[in-house]
Amino acid sequence: MKGHTVPAASVIVPAHDEERSIGRLLTGLTASADGRRLEVVVVCNGCTDATAERAADFPGVTVVEIPQPSKHLAMRAGSEVASVYPRVYVDADVEIGADAVLRLADAVRTGPLLARAPGRRVPLDGVGLLARSYYEVWQELPQVREGLFGRGVIALSEEGHRRYAELPPAMSDDLVISELCAPHERGVDESVTVVVRPPRTVRDLLRRRIRVRTGNAQADAGRLRRADSRTRPAELLRLVRRRPALAPRVPVFVAVTGLAAWRARAAVRRGDFNTWLRDESSRA
């Protein structure tokens, strides 16, 4: 019977208070055009809203609840429930369809790739001028275009998942996963797309970037990040030469990056790699 077919891949969705956004993701994940089925596991971590109830409304979705508001613990809890490989980790606030996820899973099923991510679309309609300027620069950086991070979706083969499971907890999980694979073991499939909604205000942008900088510092301390994943002034100069229209936006990018780094120092000094600053405007 169709209802008892083996899933083509397991999808793990860590979700913390995502009742406003979880529906738009699960609508896509539970509708495959080619007839294959995804095993979708939503892990509600420390939720105080109706995320679990919203997710349970979708047929075939398994809902797991843990008391701690921790993405890392949610990913581990979801993996314990998942039954097949490849494993695809999907952030609850992005949008991607089942067929796109299946394509990513197929790419890592038999190798040589261990990790695969989709192309990224960042809609900037309704985004404030400063936040828009930041993202117009950020999206053009080579490491952002080539890395698996900042997409909210990563498919892992069984071997890729084994490597990830052996790593210590990390706030910037997508960066760490991207970095644990050599360039020839990972890739971005631009033929499929995930929609990543950015913060609409510079205040929310800063909250997100402070979290990222804190996670980057943790990855650096654990030697989990390569030097070529950092943004250097020379890269910004090359970007401006290649795209002169971005020149007025680069100062905004530099200012946001510098302020986020300065404000992240307090958390790094405290060793606080658990406080998850997030923006709410992208979830409206």
Rank of each mutant, 00 (worst) to 15 (best):
G3Q: 12
H4N: 10
V6Q: 13
A8C: 03
A8P: 07
D17S: 09
D17L: 03
D17G: 08
D17A: 06
D17R: 14
E18P: 00
R20P: 00
R20L: 15
R20H: 13
S21W: 08
I22M: 13
G23S: 15
L25I: 11
L25S: 06
L25P: 10
G28T: 08
A31S: 13
A31F: 02
D34P: 10
G35I: 12
G35Q: 11
R37N: 06
R37L: 05
L38C: 04
V41P: 09
G46K: 03
E53K: 08
R54F: 03
F58L: 01
G60V: 06
V61G: 12
V64M: 05
P67T: 06
H72V: 15
L73K: 07
A74V: 13
R76G: 02
S79I: 02
E80L: 07
E80W: 12
Y89T: 07
V90R: 00
A92V: 01
I96T: 07
A100I: 10
V101H: 03
V101L: 07
L104A: 14
V108N: 02
R109D: 05
T110C: 02
T110H: 12
A117W: 07
G119K: 09
V122S: 06
L124V: 10
L129H: 08
A131V: 05
R132Q: 15
E136K: 04
P142C: 11
P142F: 07
Q143S: 07
V144R: 15
R145L: 15
R145G: 09
G147D: 02
F149V: 08
R162I: 06
R163I: 05
Y164L: 13
A165M: 08
S172R: 09
D173E: 14
V176R: 05
S178C: 13
L180T: 14
P183D: 08
P183A: 04
R186N: 02
D189E: 15
V195G: 03
R197V: 11
L206C: 08
R211D: 07
V212Q: 09
R213F: 06
R213G: 00
G215V: 08
R223A: 14
R226C: 04
A227V: 10
R232V: 15
P233C: 14
L237A: 15
L239V: 13
L239F: 12
P244A: 12
L246I: 05
L246C: 08
V252I: 13
V252H: 05
A255H: 02
R265M: 06
A266D: 07
R270N: 12
D272P: 06
F273V: 06
N274E: 15
T275K: 11
E280W: 08
E280N: 10
S281H: 08
